[in-house]
Each structure stands twice: as structure tokens, then as C-alpha cells.
Design a protein around this nucleic acid. Structure first.
Lengths: 241, 241, 241, 241
DNA sequence: CATGAATGAGACTTCATTCAT
DNA sequence: AATGAATGAAGTCTCATTCAT
């Protein structure tokens, strides 16, 4: 799985070596990169520091990766790979739609928060940065990352448990949007978050949003709306006199 | 209101002039800055280009703004100021909670999408960048920006139309999260978005998520609430005569 | 006297006004300049601050003085003018060569130290800076400043009280060199200096250096020298065996 | 000795390389710096020109030196190091106080004048500039530079050949003051100076100033001193056989 | 393979100085 | 006379990236 991801993200550096030791080097650099990017964020991280942590020259880093941008993309890509594996591996195959949905939400929060605040910040932040040529790679990663949820949602729509008057794309925003927002809030406040409690509340609230609209309720709402409007119209007419 | 915000964000350069022409210059630079930052994003924008667009030297830019970072903060801050004014100014004072909620959602989408794709991207992107010292200013802007929604949500909770088992903070995430996600999706896809349709769907879905868990009761509660409000309004009218 | 100095130093700014109020302005600017240059030294002083102290715009300063350099030269020039006046005015006309010499030494130290450490530092420091086009003006000021001493020295040489086997120029260095060195030492150490004591010691030591060589002493010295040499020669010869 | 001095003056740039070629580069840059600073003086010299002379980018210069100020400090520091070495190396160990004194005076003039007018000017001028943070380094260099003279003076005071009613500090001013003054005169006049003649005259005049007030007694004291020394030397020789 | 060294580029910054009004 | 505004020029600094060995 990793190999695939790497190919997708990395056209590979011109002189990139391919031996066994090389693989090791790549991993070391990625590790150092993850640390530094996590600690400082993309902009404030320096290739010099990454190299230094390994006791390697900057040039070495650049012989394995095309550049800072790409290295960072790989760091994030690897995180996504691990996360995708965790979600796909842990998803309760036989669970109900709601169970699977809950699992994904909880897992997402867990992965983001337990990888360390740094990585969470990095992924959220870089997810909102246009990297000229690397955006597609990132977008692709995000697509793969959200794929499990998309499948669950599609299944839910088919079985009528999830409203099908909204596109999958919009539903996805409805789910990931709040999660990201909550996570970003958490990194900003640097607040320790109770994952379980937050996950429960989110699942609860989001699940309401995903359910098919209650027709009776809608009718009542419409009725109340109509009455309200009528009253207001009357007021306006009266005022105009 | 603008003045306050500007003071908060900008300690301003030492030699900053203050005359009328100055004000004009500031506006011009902000305009040029908005353009360049929008087109290139923060990182790829250069102070040199901003100056050049105005046919002005970089030194001039730096005599009005402490630096790239601050200029960008002002650009974003101004956008926020305008947006806050638009939302606070347009908010239907006498509308129902749901109407006000709908207004804010629609307005948010409109402001983001009609200010030009660039600004939308910039605001969303910079909102997720830690600028060491400027983050607080930005966070404050965001707080002010979301204040109207917070008030509506609070009002809704009081009147029982909005679930009060979730914190306002979480509710905010529930609302702004999806909106931002949708907007980011849109900028990524560079897709023309039907604001009205999207807004309607979002309002609809989000409103479900905001409802108190027991939907039927909630619907009835809201209905009685609406009728009650209308009646009270009528009475006030009558009393005023 | 001042007018003369000003002419020498200042070819005057193109648009320099000449009215009475102007004279006042010039004096004000010089005053502010003296303060700022004294406090910060030439390099760290800014025209902006000088203007600011007067509540005047920088441009105003530049309409009275060609530039920072020239303003500083004028500040120093004025100090020299005052000092020259003080020395020439106070010099005991009927005093002996030694009395006049002592007066000048003491006065020099006093003027330097009592004008404030800043001015002392400024004068000493700028005296050692090549100002491209202004050096001549400064040099000329220094020439005038040292003129009284030169006259005393010349009188001393004529009357045989001061050795005349050394040029006046060298004698001047012999006198001003130590004084400047002592003063610089004092500014470096920021040490409060006892002017009277220092002056007495300096006068005493310098007076020895100025006196005609004692021939008998010289003969004895030569004799001892010869004996010493002879002894050494013997030693060397013995060692070579 | 050099290493120590360099460490004291230069915390060095973060990315400073350290190989052999590096050492060479450092020397080249110092050389270029010495040239440019000598020719233009500190203020008018530009880092750009220094880099250009070497056909090197400014960034390179800044990767070896923290900045213009520091580079200049090193240039001067190196000159001091060389000079100190020359003086300490050439000082006649067995010479009389007066011989050593004369040697130092002559050497000082020689070093200043034969390193090229530029360096002389630079050293004298920068010695009188407060560089905020670098002054201490310079002051320390000057302390080391004057140390040999201080030792000689102290020895002279002990043996009664030099007046001990004046502090060493004042005596130092008495010696270096005139020398610096003469040298500055020379650079101002851009005059070719006869080093030997000037040195002889200075030594002669200064020696008088250093003598104990009572000249005849002093002369005799010195004579007996000289003879005594010679005799002792002879005895030592004899004992060693 | 690794790396020492160099560097282009751009951000910032500060000022003295100029000029139109 | 005065000044608000602009600016050229240089310093300072930081990095990602390249390349010859």
C-alpha cells in the first residue's frame, strides 16, 4: 500500500538511489521530517534542521527528495496511508451503517489527536494550502482517506437510512467539516480533548443531519411557517394603512 | 467599527503618514495586496509585486505596513470587517431563529464566493496557518465574524428550538465546518457553485443537526413559539397605536 | 565668530532661508542635533529623531542643512567655536609660557568633559572619521582650535623654554595626543574623571617632554649606554669562545 | 593565539562551513574586506563590493560572517593579531627598558604605516567608533596590543627608570596618544612619513616625559642600574660556566 | 553515496534625501 | 516656509536548492 502511495506522490528524485540501505534512509528522513514539520509547521520548518536531526547533510535530503515541498507531501502521505490502513482495517465489516459511521468519526478524531497535535495541525493546515503542483497528490490522498466514509454513506442511502436528497459530496462535507473544525479549535486552544465524549456528541448530531427528513415534521414546520407569514402579512398591511 | 479592528491588527509602521492621501494609499495598497494574495496565495505572493502593481516602491509599502505578514492580515481583516458589517447589517432583526440562521449561512457562502475565488481561498487557507504573532488577531476576527451566529444559536437554545445538550462551541463547528468544507471543495474544483441551491441544502441539513433530539416535540415547540412570537408582535403593534 | 565658522563649514542649502526667524530655526535644529548626536553618536542618530524633537518635519531640517553630515559638522563646528572662544577669552595674556600651557590643557579637558560625555565622544570620534567632503572643514576647525596652543609653543621655543629641536606639529601631537587618549579612555570607561588632578598630572608630564633636553643628563645617559654596550660586547665575545 | 581571538570576536554564522577550503575562503574574504574597508572606510564600504571583488555572492560572505560589522571587526582583529605577534616576537628580551620602549614605539609606527595607509586609517578610526556590541572585542584587542608596552612600563617603574607617580593607564595615554595623533596627522596629510626619524624624535620626547621628575638623580639611577644589570649578567655567565 | 560549499531570491528594514504642493 | 509622501540604496538575514568532487 505504501509503495502505491509513494508512486502517486513522488515522481522520485533524479538521482534517487534504490538499494536497501536507501529505503532505510528514506524512512529516516521521513521520520525526521515528520518531527520537524509537526513541531514547526511547514513554513517554519527548515531542511537544514531535518538534515541535522539525522546528522546528515542537507544535500543528502535533497538526493532522496525533490525538495521540501515533496518531503512534506510524503510525510503527510504516509500519515494518510497509516490512517487509511487503520480505518479500513478496523471498520466493523458486519456493523450497521450507523455503527460504521460512528467508527469512522471516532477513528478520525483519534488518529488526528493521538498522532500528536503537531501532525494534526500539519495535516489540517497543509490540507488548506495550494501547493501548486502537489495539490493533486494531496487531494488524491484525501479522496482515498474519505473513501470508506463515502462507501458507508452510499450504503446508507441505498438502504434508506441516510437521506438521498443530498449528494455524497455534500454529505461528506457535512461530516468532515465539523470534525476538522473541532480539531482545529482543539489545536488552537491547545486543549486536551476528550475524544470519546466529543466523538459521541458529533456522531449524535451528525447522524441527525444525515437522516432522511421527517415528512410529518416538515409538514408541521411548513404549516407554522405559513401561519407566521400570514400574520406578518397582516401586520404589514395594517402598518401601511 | 473598522477603526477599532484596524487598531487591533496594526501597530503600523513608525513613519506611517496619516493624511488624506495616506488613507487613499493605504486603500490602494490593500487593494493591490488583496489582488496579489488572492491570485498567488500568501507564500507565493511577493511584496515586490504588490508594490509594482501600484507603480510604487517597496519602501512605500513598508512605510504603510510593517511587512508582508501584516499587510496580509489587514487584507483579511478588511474582508472580515466588510463581511461582519454585511451580516450584522442584513440580519433580519425580527426574523425567526431559523430565518436568521438561514440568512447567516447563505450570506457566508455568498460573501466567500462573490468576493472572488481568491479571497475565499486566502481566508480559508490563512485561517489555518499559524502566523506566530498574528494568529491572535486572526482568531479575534474569526470570533467577531462568528458572533452573530453564536447569538442566534444561543437564542435558539433558550427558546428550545435548538438542542442545548451541545456546547455553543460545538454547534458553531457543526455549522461553520461544513460550510468551509464545501467552500474549500469549490475552490479546489474551481467550480461555479449555485449559491442558492447549496445554501438551501446546507440550511436544511444543518437545521436537522441543530434540532433537539426529540424531533416531534421540537417541531411542536417551534410551531407554538412561532405563533406566540407573531401574536406578541401583533399585540405590540396594537399597543403602539 | 560664529558667522565665520558657518561660512567655512556650510556652502548653505539651496533653498536656505535667511530671515530672522530662520536664524532661530537654524539654532533650534543645531540644538536638537547636538542632543541627538551626543546621545547616539553620528551613525545611530537619525534625522527623523532630530526633526521630531523639534516637532518639525524632516524636510524642514533638510531645507536648512544640506544633510545629516553637514548638520553634524555644524554641531561640532559650533562646539569648536564655543571652545575656541572660551580658550582664547580665558587665556592669561600675561602668564608665563607654562601658565598658558597649563591653562590650555586644563581648559581642553574641562570643555570636553563638561559639555557632556556625549559631545566629547562625538568630537573625538568624528575627528577620526573621513567625511569625504567635510573633512577639510573639520580639519580647519581643529587647526583653529589648536592655534592658541601653537602660539604658546612657538613663544616657548623662541624664549628657549621649550625644546626647538622638534617641529611644532610634532609638539602639538605630543600635547593633544595624550589628552585625547585620556578623554577617550574616560568615555570608554564612562568614568567620572577628576579634571583638576588629571590636568595637573598631564601638565607635569607633558611639560617634561617639551623641555629642552638636558645636555649633561644626555651625556651621562650616553656614558652609561656606552659602558653597557661595552660590557655586552665582552659578554658576547666570551660566549662565542 | 589567533584562534582565541577569533573565537572571542566571532560567534560565526550558523551555517558556517569549517573545512580547509573554508579556511581559505575566510582568508580571501578577510583579504577583500581589508582592501575595501581600507579604501573606502567602514561607512562607505559595502558588503556587495567585498563579495564582488571575490567573484562571490553576498550570501557567501554572510555565510562566513554575521555581517558587515563583524567582518570589519575581524579584519581589524587580524591586523591586531599580526601586530601583536610582530611586537611580542621582535621585542628584544634582554634589552634595557629604554631599548624595549623604543622598539615598541618604532614598531607601532612601522606596523601602522607599512600595512598601507588604509589600514592605519581604518584601525585608528574604528578604534574611535562605538559599535554597540563589538566595542568590547575591539577594546580587548587594544588591551592586548598595548600589553607589551604596559609590561615594559611596569618594569621601568619598578626599577626606578620610569616615574611611578603616574598610573600605568596615564603613562599608556602619554605614549600611545602622541603616536596615534602623529599617525592620524600623517593619514590626513597623506604624507609619506620618515618612520625612523619620527620614531627617534618620539622616543626621545616621550622618554623625557616618562622620566622621574628629578632628572639628574634619575640619570644617575639609570646609570647605576645599567651597570648593575651588566655586572649581574656577567656574573650569571661566569656562574653558568 | 554523501556532502561541503555556493548561491539566487526574496523578505524585511532603515534612512537620508528629494520634491510637489 | 513647511511638509507629507515617496523612494533609492544598502544592510541584514534566511532558505531551498544545486553541483562538483
Amino acid at each position: 500500500m505504501e509503495a502505491v502511495a509513494q508512486k502517486a506522490v513522488l515522481p522520485a528524485s533524479r538521482r534517487q538511489p534504490a538499494g536497501r540501505k536507501s529505503q532505510q534512509r528514506v524512512r529516516e528522513i521521513l521520520q525526521a521530517g515528520r518531527e520537524v514539520f509537526s513541531e514547526k509547521g511547514y513554513a517554519r520548518a527548515t531542511t537544514a534542521e531535518i538534515a541535522q536531526r539525522l546528522g546528515v547533510s542537507e544535500a543528502t535530503v535533497f538526493s532522496y527528495f525533490r525538495g521540501k515541498r515533496e518531503l512534506c507531501a510524503r510525510v503527510i502521505g504516509d500519515w494518510y496511508d497509516e490512517s487509511i490502513a487503520a480505518i479500513e482495517g478496523g471498520l466493523p465489516r458486519d456493523g450497521t451503517v450507523r455503527q460504521q459511521f460512528a467508527f469512522i468519526v471516532r477513528m478520525h478524531l483519534q488518529l488526528m489527536l493521538e498522532s500528536g497535535t503537531g501532525i494534526c495541525e500539519l495535516v489540517l493546515s497543509e490540507g488548506r494550502t495550494r501547493h501548486h503542483d502537489l495539490s493533486e497528490a494531496l487531494t488524491e490522498m484525501q479522496r482515498r482517506y474519505t473513501a470508506p466514509l463515502m462507501r458507508v454513506l452510499a450504503r446508507g442511502q441505498e438502504s434508506g437510512q441516510i437521506r438521498n436528497d443530498l449528494s455524497l459530496r455534500l454529505l461528506r462535507s457535512l461530516v468532515f467539516g465539523p470534525m476538522e473544525h473541532v480539531l482545529w479549535d482543539a489545536t488552537l486552544a491547545n486543549r486536551r480533548t476528550d475524544i470519546d465524549a466529543t466523538a459521541d456528541r458529533l456522531v449524535d448530531a451528525l447522524w441527525s443531519a444525515l437522516q432522511p427528513p421527517n415528512l410529518e415534521l416538515a409538514a408541521l414546520a411548513q404549516f407554522s411557517q405559513d401561519v407566521g407569514e400570514a400574520v406578518r402579512r397582516l401586520e404589514r398591511e395594517r402598518a401601511a394603512r
